[in-house]
Every structure is written in structure tokens, then in C-alpha cells.
Write a protein that binds this DNA or RNA. Sequence first.
DNA 1: AGCATTGATCGAATCGATTCGACGAAACGA
DNA 2: TCGTTTCGTCGAATCGATTCGATCAATGCT
Lengths: 340, 340
Amino acid sequence: MVTIKDVARRAGVAPSTVSYVLSGSRKISEETRATVRAAIEELGYHPRASARTLRRARSEVLVLAVPREPGKYRSVDGRFAIDIGDMAREHGYDLLLMTERDGVRGLVRLARSGLADGAMLMAVRERDPRVEALRALGFPTALLGHGAPDEGDDPPWVDLDWAAAVSLAVRETVAAGHRRILFWASADHEFAARNGFALHGLAGAEAAARESGAEVLVRRSTVDPVELRARLRAVLTATPRPTALLVQHLIPLPLLLDEIAALGLRVPEDLAVVLVGSLPDEAVPRPLPRIDLPVGRMAEAVVRLVVAAIEAPDRSGGPGPPELIAPRLADGPPVAPPGG
Amino acid sequence: MVTIKDVARRAGVAPSTVSYVLSGSRKISEETRATVRAAIEELGYHPRASARTLRRARSEVLVLAVPREPGKYRSVDGRFAIDIGDMAREHGYDLLLMTERDGVRGLVRLARSGLADGAMLMAVRERDPRVEALRALGFPTALLGHGAPDEGDDPPWVDLDWAAAVSLAVRETVAAGHRRILFWASADHEFAARNGFALHGLAGAEAAARESGAEVLVRRSTVDPVELRARLRAVLTATPRPTALLVQHLIPLPLLLDEIAALGLRVPEDLAVVLVGSLPDEAVPRPLPRIDLPVGRMAEAVVRLVVAAIEAPDRSGGPGPPELIAPRLADGPPVAPPGG
DNA sequence: AGCATTGATCGAATCGATTCGACGAAACGA
DNA sequence: TCGTTTCGTCGAATCGATTCGATCAATGCT
């Protein structure tokens, strides 16, 4: 393994000089710099991360704590991970994936070991114990998703405004002429976990129902295919039948559409379908009106927030401001009116 | 930040004694051990990873290099990442996610910085430049997926035997009575990248066609929804029409099924559909016969292989043996005979 | 009793990069 | 010409845990 001493010897300078060439924190003559650079190149030198971290008390690593509802996997989580990895690199950080079921233990271990400088938490719940544990340690943290909007000294967070997103979906649907709307909410286990997006989405549906005067039926989703079909069938065979379906739980979308077809209903003539969230384009059978989940923007924001918390630990003015992203209709077809 | 010295002072012993209590590498009296343990507990001490790594030249971190076909995202990749994260922890390692587009640069940086002890590569290609770069550095590596099976001194790898998997799908389909079978291969960009699973799957289809005597049409998939439908329509409206469809490119499955329905074909009466690979249960509109992609087993194996390479660097007997997992039919419905 | 052995703990060197103060040489001003 | 500043580089301390040899006390053996 090639060290800074090897480079120094090769270049005929002191190790500290090599360090200064690398960091640029002191003036080094052009000539010396060139010699050192050449030596680095020839030897293929790269500073040892552990030594640098030990000395600087900064590892340049961020943790991403991914959701671990046992057996439940959302494909959008992988996209978040990748986008966050990209953004982290742009800020000079590497990304550690924390998959442990006991998120508190795993995060405390990483924080105290100094393996990471900051943490980002996905699928944040109301009164999330991970948040509490990290705050107790004074560990820089940013959240992807939020619990209640008013918990005073929460870490900075970013989230799609799920309430507004579902409200927007309802409003667009009402504007298209629908009066009886079915909102297919998040799955049972997501409500049980008190995940923010589930609770806020539901709240948005209820608020929009009150404001618009339209009737909004709410059904929770599930990951059990048989039960899922049964729930959908029950509500779509009742009379009067809803003329529009807003879907927040997107994973089983193909299953929902299949059941709709099996009931002899055409989309959108008999039932307009609107999506809230994101799926890969090619995974959606046909273009549908959709409220976008801006994965890229959220990844950018969560990394920016945690990096800010790391690099300005004074917390002047408290935690960074929460970023509640306003929903917008994705490019695509408009909501079809009732009856096609 | 609490260090080993703080613990030692609190317990009234030398720092080295604390270290021995932690590692168990020297005998320490029960009494002292208890005192030290208590001090550790009270202070909430955790060894600094950087100091330990610097001294031991071992970081206990593994890298996972995820595939980055720009704009292409496979949901199964996220499941691999999570399962690999779990397995890594079971071996005492943390998992770093490497998302950089230029995989070679990113991996070389991580290897030379000593931030990680070993690397796992996903979506390995024929003559993958990342493999060559890591070998040149003597960096412990294991592959998830393989290129050509005979490249002598490749790192150890694990893969589903995609050729056998597609062959099995063909055989099952032929056994059910089909004589004219459509194989929906991986996507264009996966062939262009010379990803192993794409090439091997295709080879398996061709081999099975020769052996079984059945006619196997091959079409490559794409991520462009319009083009995808056009390709499927073309082959399903020609005469004679295939009676079975084997799908390796699963992401657009809903779209394929929708196009099949749009053509007025019923599944499985008019067209039996067989899947090769894995999707979340609730993402598949209805249970279909399927050759399983054993994500968990592969994650277990790839971690085991890279850990073995790290902890037995002598390479006695060359790299570990490749692990080619035999395909098996997942629980689910059998392949329907032609005509229902 | 005197010497060797075992057991438990300590002290110091070490890993590799960073960073502060110091130092010699050159440039500058009086 | 002599002192002062500036510039470029060096030496040494430091970060925190590990680990090897050393040490001291207690025990065993003759």
C-alpha cells in the first residue's frame, strides 16, 4: 500500500508538503507541485480514508436508513437510494446503506463509531424513535418524509406535500365532472406504522372532500392480492358506483387495473384512474393522469439538508426549514370526464 | 466524543485493557471485565471506526456497485441491495452503495482509499472493465452475475443459470403441449451493454429450441412503451400465432399483458404466459407460472464470496468456485396447455 | 526458602494523514 | 548593510484504537 511518505520520498519533499499539494491549504511553488503530482500519479496514490477521518473527525460518509417493513418492498425506494447516492457524491460524500431492522441500534452504532457524518431517514413515522435517538446524540440528520408538521425541534426534512397532492388529485377529478370518487389509500401496514405519507395522503383526501363537496370514499390498500381484489370489488359493485379512482398505493396498480377489467369496467370511460406517486413508465400499462412524486428533487434536498447540518453544526436559527414540495400534475393525459 | 481513554480512566485501568476486554484477545479477570463493561455502558462508548481501521488495515465495509444504465431502473436491484445489506451485517460488515456512472473510477477510488475491504458488482458484463480494474489492484471482489463462463481467472461469482432458466421455461411450455413459443428477451440496452443475464437467457432459449424441436421466436424488449407494444403486436398478429409467451424482461409486464388483452387474446387460453425472474407478488395482476430469481440466495452467496476473498487473501486454489444456481419453477399455477 | 512459572495488566510503538509553529532563504525597505 | 517581511518547506504533535513485549504479583515446585 502506497502512503504519503512514499510519495514524499519519491518527490524529494516532506510528507506535509504532499498534504499541502493535495489540500491546497498552503501555498506551494508551481515546480514542487508538479513534482508531487507526478509522484502521486506514478505511484497511484490515494489518501487513506481512515487516517484522514481520524485526524479530521470527518468521514465524508452519509447513511441512508431504508424502510424495513418486513416483507414489504417498494420499488420507488431503490430509486431514492440511487438518486441520493448521486447527490451525495456531488457533495463529496459516499453513501452507506443501513438496512438493519432495528433502525435505532444500527444508526446509533454508525453515529457513535464515526463511520458516518450524518444520517438520512426514509419513511419517517409520527414520533419516529430513530429521530429521537439521533437527536440525543446530536447527530446531523435529515428526513425524507415527515410525521406531524408541528413537532418543534425536529430535524430538517423534505417531503412531497402528500395532503396537497391527494387534494389536487381530488380537485382535478372534481373539475372533470366527477362527484363520487374512490381514494385508494396507502396499505394497512403503512398506516399501522404511522408513516407520514399514508396519514397525510388520507388527510388530504378528507380535506378535499369537505372543500369540494364531492363524495370521497376511502379504502386502504393491502399487500394481500386476494384481499386487495375483494376490497376493490366490494366498492366498485356497490351502487351508486364511483366514477373515478385515485390511487396512492401504486405497487399493486396492475392488479387493481386487472380487477377493474374483470368487473367489466373500462378505463377511463367507466372509471377514470388517477395516480399519486411514481412508477417506471414502462410499468404502467397505459398513460394515466398522475400527480408526480419528484424523487430527484427530494433526493437533492435531503442531501443538501444533511450536509448543511454537518457543515454548520452551530444550528444557528434552529434546524433548516422543512421543505414541503408542492404537488403538480405530471405530463400525461388529463382526467377524463365521467362516462368517458 | 468519548474515547477509549475516557473509559480506561473511568474504570481505573489502562486503555489497552479496555481494548482487550472488547476484543477478547487476551485473558482479563472477570472482575476487571465487569468494571470496564460498566464504564463502557455508562459513557456510551463505541470504538472509533477510523482509528480501528487505520490500525487494523480493515474497514469492515463492503461496496455494492449498482447498475447505472442512464434512465433505466430495475426494481429488483433495490431488493438485491437490501438483502445484500442484511447479509453484510450478518458477517459484521456495513454496505456502501456505489452509484457513480463511471464505475471504474468510483471503485478504484474506494479501493485505494481503503474505505472498503471488498466490492460486489451487479449487472456484470462480458469483459467488464470494472473487473479488470479491481483485479489490477488486487482488491477482493465478487460478482453478481457473470459474463462468459470460461474467463479463467475471473473473481468468484454467483448467478442464476439464466440459460438453464429459460431452457426450463421452454421445456415446461413444450411439455404442456406448445409448439410455437415466443421468448420476450431482455431489453435492447441490456444486450448493448452485453449484460450476462441478457446473453445467457437468449442462449438458453436457442439451445432449448434446438433440443426440443419446438419453434422459439425471439424478440428483444425495450423501455419505450410505444415501440414495445408495436413489437409485441407484430409478432402476435402474424400467422401462425405463438401459443405461449416467455417473459424475461419483467418490468413492462403490465404493459405486455395490456397489449395482449387489447389484441383480444385471453391468458392463458389463447396465450400462455410464463415469467422468468421476480416481481413483487402484488405487482403481478394474476398468478402466472414463473421461474424464480432467488434474490436471497444470491445475496447470501455474493457476500459470502467477497468475505471469503477478504479474509483468506492467499487465494489458495485460485478464486472461489463460481456458483451457478439451478433454476426452479416457483410455486404457482402450472403452464396451461394451448387452447386453454 | 528460593527459583521458576503462570496470569493479569500496563506502557509504548504503530497505523497514515493533517496541521501548526518554526526555520532558512530570498526580497525588500531604511 | 542590517533588520524585517514574505515565501516555501520542514518537523513534530496529533487523532484513537490495537498489539507486542515488559512487568509485577501470585502461585507452584523442589
